[in-house]
Design a protein around this nucleic acid. Structure first.
Length: 258
DNA sequence: TACGATT
């Protein structure tokens, strides 16, 4: 006896691959963290038919990163949405959003490969701090450097209850470091080279001007371990790179004021 | 060019 295994096929119309729908994908940043995907679609739907939408979230906390994508049916709709929404404040929002055409998602693997290479333990020069005594000394060193009694994440290492707490530099995926005074022609490799020796680097980013593609003078480095990040900061803040003196600190939430 | 983010 034989039988047929029944299965379900999903069927949909193919979208025409014409120029009219090419590059209709938008990248949106500066979104309120509370904005849902539905609300994002509602905001953009006035400009045309939305094919897909997405809000990027932190892998650990699940909270919005304030960044998302909207793909319209047609290029012209995306263009109109940029005109209408770029630099605008959604109702209830305190900050304006940025709306621009998205980059092609394919070509971004080389950085990830580099990331793996530089996380290889035998590249670490000072080495990770394993011992409680070293941690204690490091914490005191940092307290002296900051001139204040700091909150020490060391005492709660390994706990997951940090989620939602506002600790400078801490993100769901590591410790985020702000690096200022990079030269205009800097690229990611300089950040890997500077920070890699101190331990596990998850990610580096040089912030560039959209038009000139030159570095805007700063960047970010995310490191896995607090001790290593703290040691990198203590060592690299004030470091002279070429004719520039770097300023290195944990990332803060707000723009610099002074 | 003083705190991003590219599925």
């Amino acid at each position: 006896m034989s039988f047929w295994k029944m299965s379900t096929l999903q069927v949909s119309y193919a979208r025409p691959s014409s120029a009219s729908i090419r590059d209709a994908n938008l990248y949106v940043s500066g979104l309120p963290k509370t904005m849902t995907q539905k609300e994002l679609e509602q905001l953009f739907s006035q400009y045309g038919r939305i094919i897909t939408s997405r809000i990027l979230v932190d892998q650990v906390t699940g909270v919005s990163r304030g960044v998302g994508f909207i793909r319209f049916d047609k290029r012209i709709e995306a263009e109109e949405a940029i005109k209408g929404l770029n630099g605008q404040k959604p109702s209830g929002a305190t900050e304006p959003i940025t709306v621009k055409f998205a980059n092609n998602p394919s070509q971004k693997s080389s950085q990830a490969l580099l990331s793996q290479l530089y996380q290889s333990p035998n590249r670490r020069y000072p080495g990770p701090l394993h011992h409680q005594a070293q941690r204690f000394r490091l914490d005191n060193l940092l307290n002296m450097a900051y001139g204040v009694k700091r909150f020490s994440p060391i005492t709660i290492d390994g706990m997951t209850s940090l989620v939602g707490m506002n600790i400078p530099g801490h993100t769901g995926t590591g410790w985020c470091i702000f690096v200022y005074n990079l030269s205009p022609d800097s690229d990611e490799s300089v950040l890997w080279q500077l920070f890699g020796p101190f331990g596990a680097v998850n990610n580096v980013k040089v912030i560039r001007d959209f038009n000139t593609n030159k570095c805007k003078g700063f960047g970010f480095v995310t490191m896995t371990n607090y001790d290593e990040a703290a040691m990198a900061i203590a060592s690299l803040n004030g470091y002279r790179l070429g004719d520039r003196v770097l300023q290195v600190s944990f990332k803060t939430n707000k723009a610099h004021k002074s």
